[in-house]
């Protein structure tokens, strides 16, 4: 039971970075960025390949830089070339499939056997000091994610951060306030995809493996985490949003663990379940409106009917 909790927390923190990226692109910039799936694998592929080559630390910033490049391509397509934003993400995502294969040395999966990762190095160091290293993975995952959250929160309070927020909030306004939306969208998407790649990089080293299809559905899972977190904490402020993605991601991983061990739903069905939940959650305002209208119609009909 303790192990399940620990694993759920670890995965919760690691995948929270994807939800954080979506918080930036989807909530703040108001752009559905479908680069996410491919970008996650890109981060993992770069990270695993570099780790295998003996550079587990360098692997992390390298993966983030790769992710930022992917974000830049998507941003370039939509801001400079007029490709609709959703399509821009899909185009980049499709291209990334080949790039990811390339990053893994033209194989569809790659593993790290007997190679040091940042996780194993930390555990080694801690155990070498005579302390029990069982919680090392969780500690590292939590520190990286919380640090990313703190930096993101700080960044969104700076002039550039405020400009990015205003871009998603009121595009008429930003041009009139001398903000170049092309620039802010580009910076925003680069940062979001760097976060997604960071998540991929950490997960790759944590699981010691990467598969070309590891990212399938990541964007929907990330949205699920975002929505779960916002339902629990509310979505009023940036600070709440940043905390909400972590809380949401951890809750999602607990649900996943419960499903996995109790088999209430077959685990193979979990993606469908996630998709349905996300679909319903995003549709909720429309459904509520429709239900209210039907009720009014019914009430009006009854009055006249008698």
């Amino acid at each position: 039971m303790l192990l399940i909790t620990q694993t759920a927390l670890e995965l919760g923190f690691l995948y929270a970075l994807v939800a954080m990226a979506l918080f930036l692109s989807y909530r703040i910039l108001d752009i559905a960025d479908l680069t996410t799936d491919g970008c996650f694998v890109l981060g993992a592929a770069v990270s695993v390949t570099l780790t295998a080559a003996g550079h587990p630390f360098l692997a992390i910033p390298a993966a983030m830089a790769a992710g930022a490049c992917a974000g830049f391509v998507t941003a370039f397509l939509q801001t400079r070339l007029g490709v609709p934003s959703i399509l821009a993400g899909i185009v980049t995502n499709t291209g990334l499939y080949t790039v990811n294969l390339m990053a893994m040395g033209w194989r569809s999966n790659s593993s790290l056997l007997g190679v040091d990762t940042i996780f194993s190095l930390l555990k080694g160091a801690v155990e070498g000091a005579g302390v029990d290293g069982a919680w090392c993975d969780l500690l590292l995952a939590a520190v990286v994610t919380i640090l990313a959250g703190v930096v993101l929160y700080w960044f969104l309070g700076t002039r550039l951060g405020l400009s990015i927020r205003a871009t998603g909030d009121n595009r008429d306004m930003v041009r009139a306030s001398s903000v170049n939306p092309t620039f802010t969208i580009t910076v925003g998407l680069c940062i979001a995809n760097a976060l997604t790649a960071l998540s991929g990089a950490m997960v790759g080293q944590y699981q010691k493996t990467v598969d070309i299809n590891a990212g399938t559905g990541i964007v929907v899972i990330g949205l699920a985490c975002l929505i779960i977190g916002e339902t629990v904490l509310g979505r009023r402020t940036v600070l709440k949003g940043v905390i909400a993605v972590m809380v949401g991601s951890i809750i999602y991983r607990f649900i996943y663990a419960i499903v996995f061990y109790t088999r209430v739903v077959p685990v193979d069905c979990l993606k469908l379940l996630t998709a349905v939940i996300v679909g319903l959650a995003i549709a909720a305002p429309s459904i509520k409106k429709w239900a209210m209208f039907q009720r009014r119609k019914l009430a009006a009909g009854r009055k006249e009917g008698v």
């Binding site: 960044f155 309070g157 700076t158 002039r159 550039l160 405020l162 400009s163 927020r165 205003a166 909030d169 009121n170 008429d172 306004m173 009139a176 306030s177 001398s178 903000v179």
Partner: peptide
């Protein structure tokens, strides 16, 4: 059209204020 609705009064003013001091760095708060 002139203000960002989900940002606070203070943040809106900060955006207007920080933009005009363009030479200051983008990470000014």
């Amino acid at each position: 059209k002139g203000t960002a609705p989900t940002m606070t009064i203070e943040e809106n003013l900060a955006l207007a204020f920080l933009r005009t001091t363009r030479k200051s760095n983008p990470f000014s708060r």
